[in-house]
Amino acid sequence: MSLTLADARIVTPEGVHEGWLTIEDGRITHIGRGSAPGQGLSMGGRHVIPGFVDIHNHGGAGGSFPTGEQDKARAAVELHRRHGTTTTMASLVTDSLDGLARAASALAELCDEGLLAGIHFEGPYIAKARCGAHDPTLLREPSPRELAELLKAGRGHVRMVTIAAELPGGLDTIRMAAAEGVIAALGHSDADYDTALQGIEAGASVATHLYNAMPPLGHRAPGPVAALLDDERVTVELINDGVHVHPAMLRLAYEVAGPGRTALITDAMSATGLGDGDYVLGPMRVRVDGGVARLVEGGSIAGSTLTMDVAFRRSVQEVGMSLPDAVQVASLTPARVLGLADRIGSIAVGKAADLVVLSESLEVAGVMKDGVWVTEP
């Protein structure tokens, strides 16, 4: 079955052009400029961009990936798909080793189905001083032996683990993760500049939500922020909800790292799409007020209620990114982090037809996953 989307403003890595594209068997087969040959489905001049890729997401629509409940995980994925995220990695939070293994085993089945792009352990190998919304009583020193057991529970679907490099065993665990083909991310860390550099040298290649849960950037004590921003081997995650990071600091990170090393994430939790009220994030109780999620005890920010379409729109309207750059940080760069840029992340012949149709105001008007409409424009 063939479908042509006509009268579109197509955003590719090369820029924005008016034209058309054809989809066959879930893949993009032709991209052209000007009028489409034959009859196509008119986009009415709206933008067509690649589906968003979210590499740090804890849930939504009442579903929380850390619980490992498959039905609720499906509901979360569906919620985010309606907001344009066609590829989602499920992030867990600190729990007992048995709890993490159970959740990873259950979510691995959804990875087998292709519903999820992988599993991210955000904890338990993080610093107590920077644990944020993680249960401090369940934190552990990083251990290559323990991580090997967690990877086994995930049956090859664990794609990322966040580690505080300064902890005993931190550097060895980073080396082990990288050797196993798992992305080692520095985050929830109290590391200084030099220790962060050691973590990067050991193999860490992602900054878990840059700025958040780490020492602030200082002119005499630059800390991990400067090390992570300055190193060409590191991709920095950023939560662009206007709460976690001020637009000026997000703009600074983007200007230093560039679109090729900047990845928008949601850090979304179960309340996303539902509104204010009481929820949980792993074992922690969370209250959402005015769309901001905070721990009931202590008041730390506890993930977000962000969706990627909002993060994308803010990047253009608040941060000042061009459309092609905003597409790169929301789609192509995170796809590269996952090693999937040959299949997703940009509009190109041969890639999956994961597409988002945007209105003039950059609101989602339609979403397609593998050539099938999730919501039809």
Rank of each mutant, 00 (worst) to 15 (best):
V11T: 02
W20Q: 03
T22Q: 14
D25I: 02
G26L: 06
R27P: 01
T29Y: 02
R33V: 08
S35G: 12
G38V: 03
G40I: 10
L41G: 08
L41V: 15
G44M: 11
G44W: 03
R46K: 12
P50G: 08
P50W: 02
A61F: 04
S64G: 13
K72S: 15
L79Q: 05
H80F: 09
R81F: 04
T85A: 14
T94L: 07
S96G: 15
S96N: 06
S96Q: 06
L97G: 10
G99N: 10
A101W: 02
S105N: 14
A106T: 13
A106L: 13
A108W: 04
C111Q: 11
C111Y: 08
D112E: 14
E113K: 10
G114N: 13
G114D: 13
A117S: 11
F121Q: 10
F121E: 08
F121R: 05
Y125A: 07
A127D: 14
A129R: 11
A129D: 08
R130N: 02
R130V: 00
T137Y: 03
E141D: 15
S143P: 06
L147I: 05
E149A: 15
E149P: 06
L150W: 04
L151A: 11
R155V: 12
H157R: 11
V161S: 13
T162G: 05
I163P: 00
A164I: 06
A165P: 15
A165S: 11
P168M: 05
D172G: 06
T173S: 10
A177I: 03
E180W: 00
V182E: 06
I183G: 09
A185C: 08
G187L: 03
Y193E: 10
A202P: 04
G203D: 07
A204N: 11
T208M: 04
T208C: 07
L210D: 06
L210P: 07
Y211F: 14
M214D: 01
P216C: 09
P216H: 13
L217A: 03
G218C: 05
R220L: 03
A221I: 03
A221S: 13
A221N: 12
P222A: 09
G223F: 01
V225P: 01
D231V: 08
D231A: 10
R233S: 13
V236N: 04
V236Y: 00
E237K: 09
I239K: 00
N240K: 03
D241M: 00
V243Y: 04
V245S: 03
L252W: 05
A253L: 04
G258F: 00
G260K: 06
R261V: 07
T262A: 13
A268Y: 01
A271D: 02
T272H: 02
T272M: 02
G275R: 07
G277Q: 10
G277C: 12
Y279D: 01
Y279R: 00
G282I: 04
V288D: 05
D289E: 15
V292R: 02
S300G: 04
R313S: 09
R313Q: 06
S331H: 14
S331A: 15
L332R: 09
A335E: 12
L338N: 06
D342E: 14
D342H: 14
I344K: 15
A348Q: 15
V349Y: 03
V349F: 06
V349I: 14
A353Y: 05
L358V: 12
S359N: 07
E360Q: 13
G366I: 03
G366H: 02
V367Q: 11
M368D: 10
K369G: 07
V374D: 07
V374N: 09
E376V: 08
P377R: 06
